[in-house]
Amino acid sequence: MALKGRLEDFGITQLLNLINLARKTGTLYLEGAQKNSYLCFREGKLIYAALEGVEDSLPVILQRANVFTAEQVRMIQTNMAGRTDRDIAQVLITSGRLQQQVVVKSVRDAILDLVYQIFSWHEGQFRFEPSKLPVQGKITTSIALENVIMEGSRRVKEWERLQDELPDLDIPLKFAERPTTPLRDVNLSVEEWRVISFVNPSNTIRQIAQFNNMSELQIRKIVYSLLQAGLVEIIRPPRPTVAPASARQVPEGMPQPTAAQMQRPAVKRGIVQKLISRIREL
């Protein structure tokens, strides 16, 4: 089933987060306001990206990375016309003109540069084609999306959007129970580390901002990126129970229940079973 929609409604950060968490394999096609692009993923990792108008052949990528000069690139293109990037890389590496890690790093940097450009797209259409990977002959890599999301989120400047995503600052944070990546493998900025150091169920986001002398905008940006990267989670109200209202106790420090909570009916097993039987019969 293809996922599709508008970037106005479902942004790049959210899409990457979904692909990461769902460990998706396939290609995300983006039709921006001015350009088109596609990003390929395997098991939730970014493996390739292309952007309309940006030359993505290996020699050009290596030139942009200052590995080769324009003249060297012209020679390679002439001598190896018609060959795929993989073939070119193999020839250059086996001939000793290039180290494999240089190729890998250059391709990786090129892909990331491109993806970060796409983060600024807030208008357009997207669709995700599962299992489709148009990367034949291309050099692919495997980039964990957590860092990409972190960096991309840093570039998201829309204050309104942040406010929309995180309307309430008077709630605490906790570390994710099952983070998608170990904290030591994530590149955090100094400011993000300062926030991380105060993450504790007893501190609200607003208090963390006050401790660090941060504005609402700063703290929203940082918390938003940490949430999107799956490093921290908002502490939700406790899981529901069906204890009678009179027997329910409010933990210290938690808000008192509203009238609606007090009036919730206690329900017996037999009654729920009656409901189930009746609905099955409908």
Binding site: V267, V272, L275, I276
Partner: peptide, 13 residues
């Protein structure tokens, strides 16, 4: 509706 009721039943249990 049944799935919701099953969830309620689980909590009752």
């Amino acid at each position: 509706l049944l799935e919701l009721l099953y969830s309620i039943l689980e909590l009752v249990d």
